[in-house]
Amino acid sequence: MNTLLDTGLAVRGLRKSYGGREVLKGVDLTVAPGELVALLGANGSGKSTALRCVVGLAEADAGEIRVAGTSLRGLSGAELTRARRAAAMVFQQIHLVRRRSALDNVCAGGIAGLPLSRSLSPVLFPRELREHAMACLDRVGLADRAHDRAGSLSGGQQQRVAVARALCQGARVLLADEPVSALDPAAATQVMALLAELAHEDGLAVAVVLHQPELARLHADRLIGLIDGEIRLSTPAALLSEEDIAALYRGERG
């Protein structure tokens, strides 16, 4: 329908229930390439679930998901995995293998297409993959820490390694589930600036679940607000008002 969306993310009518409770009540979400969209909302409003449905960590009950121009509807097995590979995910808990080096962790993002004989241990990873991973590490500004153990890096550095891993996956759509909730303010700003750069300079479609409206206003292009599984707010970041923010989080108090 829209050539702009051929490399972005488009979600239509997404529904999901857990044990009878509707978490997503028909969510429409579009993220264009080159755009950073922040998802705001109280705990339990469905922000994370929406992202998890896109990458397959949760199974949507209804709705259509298009990743980089390919609809996931009707796909299964290897085809579904391949289509989903265009979307990468970054987590609040970072989820790196702490005992492995930063570079090996980044390489792991790109092993999906490799035969088992080249992917069961870092010593078997092909040189092209290692070079690609090095470029990704360089993109997040950590080329000099390539051989450091992931666990020895600071929280902000670890999250940037996780972003590099997502880049190594070759994703066109980058999803981030509260990527800065566990980081100090300086590191949080750095990671958010990196995500904005990846959208604006590298043309990725970036969707970030955030709990800090201030960070969203600073770094995002567009804000989407969810209340009880429905989108109630969609506004350019510059136009976000204090009343909007209060309305989003009102349900949690009382």
């Binding site: 960590l57 989903r84 590979r85 987590f91 989820h95 792991a108 891993r165 996956q169």
Partner: peptide
């Protein structure tokens, strides 16, 4: 978590 991260990457 790390296993989920690699599954998402299509491993």
């Amino acid at each position: 978590g790390p296993a989920d991260a690699l599954r998402v990457a299509g491993a």
